[in-house]
Write a protein that binds this DNA or RNA. Structure first.
Lengths: 137, 137
DNA sequence: CTGGGTGCAAAAAGTTTGCAGCGAC
DNA sequence: GTCGCTGCAAACTTTTTGCACCCAG
């Protein structure tokens, strides 16, 4: 691994600040966190990171492809590490649970869309809604 | 077809109002409309349907499974008829275009999730992000 | 008539922006 | 020391809610 994300930031003229490190740590540990949850998590460690800084930081981190976001339902978007995005989200309409499964389940879909429509699927951003095992009694 | 949606409404103690008919017509004609677009469309026909009535009506219609919604990108959700939901949305990250394809492309995915995770996929609600033929040079 | 529905306005929730001071480099 | 970053507060957008009046059944 040639460069850390800190070096990547500096190389692009951005600065490495405590806030940015804290937000990235929060995204890492929360795994599926909304901006507000991330803000709260950050404030448990060091206090006083503003919600608007969280938004600005998430935007920046997403621009650098360090994090990604997905819309899992009605509420605010949830953010997670891009390197951990190697999965497909399953959202249960019954209990609201979010689980992660391997992208291989979508292999057929990806190939069908590429073959029939020339569409390159971004599997990292795939969210499947339905009913989980526990809920379709 | 035994009952119209109007009869279904009345059967459940709800009332059939001009506003509800207009909103449903707007959802039908727009195909992928946000609440605000639906409100605007309704106001072109009859004027004076309030945005909050649109929200309340959409919530009701969704509860009755007459319409469904999907999050296609960053903005507000888009609503469409449930009976027309028999397709999968493709959203292009390049040009933002939304296209509809047959759910058969997801057959493999559906079977894999059912077999491996006991998860019953709601194909009507499936949205796939990626890059369309025109945009991936 | 009766109770659900609507419009209006205010509030809530989520997100963005302007600006002065601070701190990474 | 410079210039990007942050905190704060205000503005903005989207959605929800309270309430009095209205109308479908």
């Amino acid at each position: 691994m040639a460069g850390t994300w800190q070096e990547e930031l500096r190389a692009k003229g951005y600065r490495v600040t405590p806030q940015r490190q804290l937000v990235l740590e929060a995204v890492t540990s929360l795994e599926h966190g909304t901006p507000e949850e991330i803000c709260t998590a950050v404030q448990r460690t060091a206090q006083g990171v503003n919600i608007s800084t969280v938004y600005r930081t998430l935007e920046l981190l997403e621009e650098l492809s360090l994090v990604k976001h997905a819309h899992l339902g009605h509420g605010p978007p949830t953010y997670h590490l891009a390197v951990e995005a190697e999965h497909v989200h399953l959202v249960c309409r019954g209990c609201g649970a979010v689980s992660d499964v391997t992208p291989t389940v979508a292999d057929g879909l990806v190939e069908a869309l590429r073959g029939e429509y020339g569409f390159e699927t971004d599997v990292h951003h795939l969210t499947v809604y339905g009913v989980c095992e526990n809920c379709h009694g």
